[in-house]
Amino acid sequence: MRKKIRFQNTKAETAVYFCASLTGLLLIWYLAVRYTNLNKVMPSPFEVFAFVGSSFVKNIGSRILPFHILASLKRVFVGYFLACIIGIPLGIIMGCSRTGKAVIKPIFELLRPIPGLAWIPLAILWFGIGESSKYFIICVSAIVSIILNSYSGASQVDPILTGAAKMLGARPIQIFFYITLPSSVPQIFAGLQVGLSSSWMAVIAAEMIRASEGAGWIITTGMESGNTVQILSGMISIGLVGLLLASLLRLMERGLCAWNIQGK
């Protein structure tokens, strides 16, 4: 009789499935490159990981890989931070105040469909080709989902809760801080997660505007020199750092919204 493996907890189960799927993907990649014509345009995973490993001590361009990643991280953090400090209050104002919604929402709806990358020409004209234009592009790419989710969280506060707080004597400012804000936190975090992914996507485009370092720069120069190993190394670096950042944000969410996670 076959024995079925039973996991003690879902965390272990998830980790096992994650490792299995990753190994499967690498295996398919390896076999495809080894036994098909794909090897003409695609390096094997061993080559890519060897390049990633060696670039921790050997320069890509004028810097080693960790420096490139840190350069991209700095850009993402500045742009993303700006998106957070502008986007969260704007979304909450739209969600809480009728006037705020009437004033901000039409403008937001007009700008919302414009992709972050469409702002590149204007960003160069306004801020030049230095760091500011990169921050701007990352900021506009991340801000839409942050505003939308903050708005959605603040506008969907259960009226029964605000009613109950009113009954207990809470004033509007107390209702805002004790009811509206905490009940919006899970939605705000959902927006922050999407915004973070958008920031990482935007950093590649932003680093196409005259950069001499960064994960995006690794990909762009790899493309210019036809170096697929370097392109894939840059992509993998972005993927891994993005995964790490999303996990950190999720940990933060677990800390701040323990009630939401424990309740599920």
Binding site: I160, G163, A165, M167, G169, A170, Y178, C257, W259
Partner: peptide
């Protein structure tokens, strides 16, 4: 006016523990 209203629907705040929910009105007052 000191009024308390127990509604038909559940009006507990999901981000507060039972203890904090009970203390909510007392802290406000």
């Amino acid at each position: 006016h000191s009024i308390a209203y127990i509604m038909q629907e559940y009006s507990t705040m999901s981000w507060l523990t039972v203890r904090e929910n009970v203390q909510f009105g007392m802290k406000i007052r």
